[in-house]
Nucleic acid binder design. Structure first.
Lengths: 212, 212
DNA sequence: GACACAGCATGACAGCTGTCATGGGACCGG
DNA sequence: CCGGTCCCATGACAGCTGTCATGCTGTGTC
């Protein structure tokens, strides 16, 4: 008999977390070694428990660690921080946003699943990832290829992200240390690339694609 | 020995749905009589199974029913459609938006829970609701009172909702059959009431409060 | 009826936003 | 080195947006 496959859950929705734990315990070779509700908690528990596989939600509050230093603010940053630690990571998300997939794989995760996938597929993914394979939701992979990569330049992305926080052009310019004219120009480029009518729609479209 | 408490689950996230089902089956007096992934499916299953309690997600795709007529498009509309049917309803939601609570109770639901509440509290809520009591997440209830009711008039809400779909003022005016000037005026009133700088922020704020 | 009041509709005006033309700097292949 | 290309920065201009003053309608009160 082989050693159990040790799984750690990290998701801020308590209901999903405990539900998933109950489901995974039904698999005889799985052992759920912990549940984390925040990014900081996830890192702590990984350190302490050294799980084989970490199931990680993208949208998750940062939480606080002992040191007081500012830790990761979402699941992708947690994955980034754990790169090279040997822990296999599957990123879970509510939204099948194509851009997330790209960023997730770039962050060093091994799997990517949406929350409306059936449980069997998640269980499969956990086993695959544990064997050193990758596990990507096929539907999402196709969508990701269809949408293509982020068409925005670094500066455009930065300005758009600042614009997403709201406020007038002057506010945005102050945040990114640019002149108002330059901010408007970058936003104009974004609006053109995204084929939308104004900055508000640009923010929405980019968010939907996971580009900001 | 009393009859089991028959529960129906409606949520588009398969993982949460089956996880929750597994958890509720652990309660000996509960029986999970079905799972629905869309609004239409939820109505069908309620008709067929006549559950005691329906757990209903707010964000849920409409789905298609036999008749072809356009059915409810979100959980709140499902609750509305089931008003007076005798089925007790608990609305579940990811976001603790105060406005949702108000609309939920107005739609005739008996309980309101956020998805990051612990399972015990949900189980409690199901039992309470089955006994004919109400079950509202206390934290959210407090927040709801603090935020207050929707300050927008009917027309303002309608225009803002049209504005949320994006596009220029002319587009919005065409959607709500008003002149551009009138649209701008309503939006100006909304912007004033919500203490924000422009229509984009107004849309965001109103959405966060569940007012549109 | 007279009145106050709230919501709705409209157009004029000032200011903010998106577009464009222009120019500077970094990088690459020839 | 040079031309080509890409990204970044800037200011002028036209058009869209938010504000305001004004008037209309329906409702409830006296």
């Amino acid at each position: 008999m082989s050693a159990p496959l040790r799984v750690l859950l990290a998701d801020d929705q308590a209901l999903l977390r405990s539900g998933l734990a109950a489901l995974l315990r039904l698999e005889k070779d799985f052992e759920v070694v912990g549940e984390a509700a925040t990014c900081a908690e996830a890192l702590d528990l990984v350190e302490r428990e050294r799980p084989d596989v970490l199931l990680l939600d993208v949208q998750m509050p940062a939480g606080m660690r002992g040191g007081g230093q500012s830790g990761p603010a979402d699941g992708l940053e947690v994955a980034e921080a754990l790169r090279g630690s040997g822990v296999r990571i599957i990123v879970l998300t509510t939204f099948g946003r194509a851009g997330y997939l790209r960023r997730t794989l770039a962050a060093g995760a091994d799997g990517f699943m949406v929350k409306d996938a059936p449980v069997d597929r998640l269980v499969d993914a956990i086993r695959r990832v544990h064997r050193g394979l990758r596990a990507v939701d096929p539907e999402l992979a196709a969508q990701s290829l269809a949408v293509g990569p982020n068409p925005l330049t670094a500066k455009e992305t930065e300005v758009l992200r600042a614009a997403a926080r709201g406020g007038t052009t002057a506010d945005i310019a102050a945040r990114v240390f640019l002149s108002e004219g330059t901010v408007r120009n970058h936003l104009s480029a974004v609006i053109g690339k995204l084929c939308v009518a104004n900055r508000a729609e640009a923010v929405r479209t980019a968010t939907e694609h996971g580009w900001i």
